[in-house]
């Protein structure tokens, strides 16, 4: 990876952090409604894994799918930030035309196949995306990002089994942040190491530090090569931490300030910034300038677009329930 790419990666992670911070502000101003789940703290995982996948190239992309904490996965896959923000604002110009909101970002033009509020759902959907890729022989793979809490759904076990028996090109990325909503992993799950759970299905798996993007990228590259070469599914586990609550309504009463401070020392952005500074690639002032440029772009382009975009029309309420232009040969009316 060259120096320009390293600086770009740092910029991306800072951008994702600032994006989430800005949605927090908009939520407090009641410009964003519903549930809002922020990714702050976990940036190295999505950024690092997807850096090694095919993203940002439209329909040549690998397929990416995740749960409701989905903004950053969508952005890194290639969804335009303006459209993701407009979706959070519920606007017609949003990624899902204002019908999905924070938890349901979709951008099929970049093969980002959604955020889902049922945390067990993306497992089989991802395996299905992979089955489609395999069937069509496109050399694409499916990448499924989910938290450790999702692994206690039955679909986890059902899907690991089928992904393995059908040798599907799917990469499961477990972002183990230690909490299933507000319940600590030791109280919800019989084993802390999630990668061990897929041994029951004879699936390749490994566990890594999720706060250091260089470690994430190294592990992801190997896993993606494995999956793309037709060797079958792979399960990657990254140990990470979400700096904010589960959602905006979370008082974080279930964890201690000491624990949070320990993890904040391992902030993925700080780890990578320091590494680039130590290597002489960038200075603290450069980073400050980068942050200023990000914030200006955020206000002048992204927020402005979201604020000024139109709301969906009430007359369009019933659009998109079924195919709005169905073929009468299959639908009818019945010839009497």
């Amino acid at each position: 990876m060259n120096d320009a790419d390293k600086k770009r990666l740092l910029r991306e992670m800072i951008f994702y952090r600032r994006f989430e911070d800005r949605t927090f502000e908009a939520y407090m101003e009641r410009k964003i409604g519903g549930f809002l789940h922020l990714y702050s703290g976990q940036e190295a995982v999505a950024t690092g894994v997807l850096e090694k996948a095919v993203v940002g190239q439209g329909n040549k992309n690998d397929y990416v799918i995740t749960g409701y904490r989905d903004h950053v996965h969508a952005l890194k896959t290639g969804a335009p930030a303006k459209e993701v923000m407009a979706e959070l604002y519920g606007k017609e110009t949003g990624s899902s035309r204002g019908r999905g909101g924070s938890m349901h970002i979709f951008d099929p033009t970049q093969n980002f196949m959604g955020g889902y509020a049922l945390v067990g759902q993306p497992f089989p959907l991802a395996a299905g995306l992979a089955m489609g890729c395999k069937h069509k022989k496109t050399n694409q793979i499916a990448i499924c990002f989910l938290g450790d809490g999702a692994n206690n759904q039955g679909t986890f076990h059902e899907t690991m089994n089928m992904a393995k028996i059908w040798n599907l090109p799917v990469l499961f990325v477990c972002e183990n942040n230690g909490y299933a909503i507000g319940t600590h992993i030791d109280r919800s799950t019989a084993v802390r190491d999630q990668y061990k759970r897929v041994a029951a299905y004879d699936m390749e798996a490994s566990q890594h530090d999720g706060m250091d993007i260089d470690i994430v990228m190294e592990a992801a590259e190997k896993a993606i090569d494995f999956v793309r070469s037709g060797k079958g599914p792979y399960f990657l586990e990254f140990m990470t931490y979400r700096f904010r609550g589960h959602s905006m309504s979370d008082a974080k009463s279930y964890r201690t300030r000491e624990e949070e401070l320990e993890w904040e020392k391992r902030d993925p952005i700080n780890i990578y910034s320091k590494r680039l500074i130590d290597a002489g690639l960038i200075t603290q002032d450069d980073i400050k300038a980068m942050e200023r440029e990000i914030d200006e772009n955020m206000e002048n382009e992204i927020i402005k677009f979201a604020e000024e975009s139109p709301e969906p029309r009430v007359e369009d309420l019933t659009k998109y329930v079924l195919d709005d232009n169905p073929d009468p040969r299959w639908i009818g009316p019945l010839q009497k």
């Binding site: 089989p124 995306l129 489609g132 890729c133 679909t155």
Partner: peptide, 14 residues
């Protein structure tokens, strides 16, 4: 539940 989900995922790619 999961093989239905796999069918759904496959249908999302055509």
């Amino acid at each position: 539940n999961s093989y239905t989900g796999i069918g759904i995922g496959a249908s999302m790619v055509g």
